[in-house]
Amino acid sequence: MDALVLIEHGDGAADEGSLQALTLARAYPDGAVNAVLFGPGAEEAASGGLAGVQTAFVTTLEGAAFSPDAWASGICELIGRLAPGVVIAAGSDRGNDVLARVAARLDLPLAANCTAAEPSESGALVTRVRWGGSLLEEAALEGAPVLLTTALHAFAEAPREGSAAVERVDVTLEQADRVVSVTEHVEAGGGGVSLAEAAVVVSGGRGVGSAEEFAVIEELAGLLGAAVGCSRAVTMAGWRPHSDQVGQTGTKIAPELYIACGISGATQHMAGCKGAKHLLAINADGEAPIFASADYAVIGDLHEVLPAIAEAIRKARQP
């Protein structure tokens, strides 16, 4: 069964999420794997190596702006021409968005964020994530072709190697395909350590008590060169901006060390920090659910524990 994979790319190289989608495509039984890439830099990314890909179809689309309906239109055209058995994209913002549009155009089902998929008589049997990864679902998906996206980090990345044949294709776009186009890109201002990328994150929850009392969290974060995070209880109280929120509907983080203070460990919070290598939880309640996911536990009032830790760090660093 032939597979078609949407490869997102930047700086002339395929994105990691798309290379994970490619891994599933290559594992899909019996058939060639083809890829489709859009926009400026597509050809470079295709020539940079997409392991196992037979033909990389490259569509520059005039103009640099991202236009999700144009991508969907291009994918539908290739589906018509190649009749793949399965079409796969990364479960990224763009991957999920564009495949939903493809599914809507073809009136086919779509399974988003799969961690496994195998062909069945009428389509595929898939495992997909719900609740931001806190729950797995086994589902039967109909469709010719089968449409799915892969959950981020569910598959290893296919190597950027090999030499796919690159074929330029033109997409016939209708006026309506151009209505939704990026007109401008604004870069985030503000320095500081980015929450998503930080090696260490110190987070506070409702247990911190108020916006002012976040000073103890900020102090420890400062000492460790860490980003400050928080729980949804904190954003809803207006103590911190939503950009600090870790979780299912906040930022997903994967730092070396996550220090969670006064956070109970609701599944929706944990959905955002599962990727942390080490978790230190500080909580007044020895029975708090967060301890079940923690590597290190401190039971106590964070307003006593955090200043003591800050003091001990300063002492340890004294020459």
Partner: peptide, 25 residues
């Protein structure tokens, strides 16, 4: 046409937290 068959919990972290202590100590 996307038919849920069953749900399951992902395997737990299997972690056993090391208690570093209580309070400021």
């Amino acid at each position: 046409r996307l038919a849920m068959r069953s749900l399951s919990l992902p395997p737990g972290s299997g972690k056993q937290a090391r208690v570093l202590g209580r309070g400021a100590d």
